[in-house]
Nucleic acid binder design. Structure first.
Lengths: 221, 221
DNA sequence: GAGCCCGTGGCAGTTTGCTGCCACCGGCAC
DNA sequence: GTGCCGGTGGCAGCAAACTGCCACGGGCTC
């Protein structure tokens, strides 16, 4: 039987987390929907930033985390302190921590019954199989996620309905003329949209714009 | 205490797996390094294909799986039978199965001690937190992995040292002239390389090639 | 109504990308 | 040596892309 512990409530979680957070040079890896995976998440991050132990921390969030202005600032701060922050294209409903490739902590899914009690539970384990498997998946998700800068720095705003159709047309590899005809607009207007896209994606060429779009997953929408 | 079971040996694994494999309409999700995650993997896949229950199966492999010619064929066959197959850019050292979002089975890391015994072990659990967490990570990894066709149909062979430099140059968004000068080759040769890349990536335009390259992660090497 | 703004489209001119043709050069076989 | 071959580069011509300019039309205020 492998050891898996259920942690009831945030106090218990914090009791387990703190000694780990205080040990220097530990590798922290975290996937979550937003910055409030658990009540102490922000504080823990701040603690780590102060200790300067951040370079070995990786944080993977879903795009939802960018919705709030203050959250975006918090992310910037984390990045400035050496955290590596990336944004995945999926919701990441459940939070995951992997510490030093040895310990894994997961937020339990919020069931109506549990929510009513108002006490969140967490699952913790040090079983190599569980930790290793989760780490491998995290690595795969991390590898292809977009860097925070790519999301904040470059143009998110570009995607109104029409521009998005232009983007997809570009992705099919047809000529401007064919694409414009297909979308029912003039060649001139089509190229206007393309030019706007290049600006929005901060790209100097169509190729670069394609790379950006591909990395940001804009062509799959 | 949450229930996590260690399965010792392939027979025990098969005993647990089989009833799940035989139930129709189950969602199978699998991340692994290659087709031999466990001894019965190929057979199990074949079983599923025969039952036509494949459309709800997703398989995520590391690029290593493409090394062998027969493996590539096996992948094609799976794809033809409705399996959705994608290739991630990371090694995925540990195999992971998630069945119906309720059960998770992981291959244990192969330790020297265990290897000597010649008996592989697996870890199985139905704890919602573990399954849900792994599922979320899988989803994120899946979302940004490249489709099998993108890897097989298009050109993997393209990436010799020089072509790769051309690719990076393209990614910086400079003009052909500047890029050629920078790489110390003539404009003509540079464009030859670009044209070869377009063919290799099966792209009809530079934009499309950029998207492909971005999705395949070729620009990060 | 006049005047204005904004988005669209046409046109023309320029730049950039793309490619077929040929010439050159180094390596190799004979 | 001659001949062949594969890779390279220059040139020219063409196609595609980019952009500045202006005109037209709808919606708006006044």
């Amino acid at each position: 039987m492998t050891q898996v512990t259920e942690l009831r409530g945030d106090l218990e979680l914090w009791a387990r987390m703190k000694p780990l957070a205080e040990s220097d040079d530990a590798e922290w890896v975290n996937a979550a929907r937003d910055l409030d995976t658990w009540p102490g998440a922000r504080e823990a991050a701040r603690l780590q930033m102060r200790r300067g132990a951040a370079p070995r921390a990786r944080k993977l969030y879903s795009p939802a985390v960018l919705a709030d202005e203050r959250d975006r600032e918090a992310l910037r701060e984390m990045a400035d302190h050496g955290f590596r922050v990336r944004i995945a294209t999926t919701p990441l409903p459940q939070g995951t921590f992997i510490i030093d490739r040895r310990t894994i902590i997961l937020t339990d899914p919020v069931l109506p019954a549990t929510a009513a009690q108002g006490r969140r539970t967490y699952t913790m384990s040090a079983a190599p199989a569980l930790v290793g498997g989760a780490y491998a998946l995290f690595e795969a998700a991390w590898e292809s996620a977009a860097d925070l800068d790519a999301f904040l720095g470059s143009g998110r705003p570009a995607i109104d309905a029409q521009t998005s159709r232009v983007l997809r047309a570009l992705g099919t590899g047809v000529t401007d003329e064919a694409a414009a005809r297909q979308l029912g607009m003039s060649l001139r207007t089509y190229r206007r949209r393309v030019a706007e896209l290049l600006v929005a994606l901060d790209a100097g060429s169509r190729f670069q714009a394609g790379v950006r779009a591909g990395e940001l997953g804009l062509t799959r929408g």
